[in-house]
Computed example of a mutant assay.
Amino acid sequence: MTDKTEKTALTPKTHTIPPARFSHGVRKGNILQVAGQVGFLPAVEGEPPTPAGPTLREQTLQTLANVKAILEEGGASWDDAMMIRVYLTEVDHFAEFNGIYDQYFASLKEVPPARTTVYVGLPKGLLVEIDALAVLG
């Protein structure tokens, strides 16, 4: 059994090895930080990452699935999420994103997590990035 206070890197089977020296997620004790995730489809060995599609909806739903996979890898769920940070490439996507986000989290049993949204530049074709901070019971 591992020491719960030791820092553990989290990489679900659906994710590729990060392109630089960072972890997709890290858990230490009851704190779990998910690194910024984008809407790449599950990894296929030997293939470059592929976005879920060109639309904000496709990329947002896949990005949320990628964040969820890391939460689950660390023993957490959306109900453990305290903070979600959203990075959008277009100000005009804010209202559409809110609609997708609200629909996705409509079944959340707990108080919804806090959220920050900022506008950034991402690699060409990527529209959204999301990270999360969770505290496990």
Rank of each mutant, 00 (worst) to 15 (best):
E90A: 13
L133G: 04
L108H: 10
V91A: 09
A106M: 11
F105N: 07
I130D: 00
A81P: 01
S107T: 10
M82I: 13
V91D: 11
V128A: 02
L127I: 02
A114W: 11
L122C: 03
D102G: 15
A76Y: 02
I84K: 01
V118A: 09
M83V: 15
G99F: 00
I130P: 00
P113I: 08
D92G: 07
Q103D: 14
S77L: 01
L108S: 06
A95F: 09
L127E: 04
A132Y: 03
L133I: 10
T89M: 08
P112C: 10
M83R: 11
V118Q: 14
D80T: 04
Y87H: 12
G125M: 02
A132M: 06
I100C: 06
M83A: 07
A81C: 12
A81I: 05
Y87R: 14
I84F: 02
R85S: 12
A106Y: 10
P123W: 07
M82P: 00
L88E: 06
L122H: 00
L122Q: 04
V111L: 13
L126I: 11
Q103N: 11
V118H: 08
A81D: 02
A106S: 15
K124E: 14
D80Q: 07
G121Y: 04
L126E: 03
Y101H: 15
V120P: 05
V91T: 09
G121S: 13
F105M: 15
P113V: 07
D102S: 15
N98F: 03
T89I: 09
E129P: 00
G75K: 01
D92Q: 12
I84V: 15
I130A: 02
V128R: 01
M83T: 10
V86R: 01
L127H: 07
W78E: 01
I130C: 08
Y104K: 05
E129S: 15
S107C: 04
L133Y: 13
S77V: 00
N98W: 02
P123K: 08
L108F: 07
L126R: 02
G121N: 12
V118E: 12
A95R: 10
M83W: 14
A106R: 14
A132E: 07
F97I: 06
Y87G: 11
A95K: 11
P123S: 09
W78M: 01
R115N: 12
R85Q: 14
A76S: 03
L127R: 03
R85L: 01
R115K: 14
I100A: 05
K124M: 05
V91I: 11
Y119C: 03
D131N: 15
A132F: 04
T89Y: 02
R85I: 07
E110D: 10
R85D: 08
A132V: 00
F105G: 06
G75V: 02
I100G: 02
E110H: 13
T89R: 08
V86P: 06
P113C: 06
D80S: 10
Y101L: 07
E96L: 12
K124A: 10
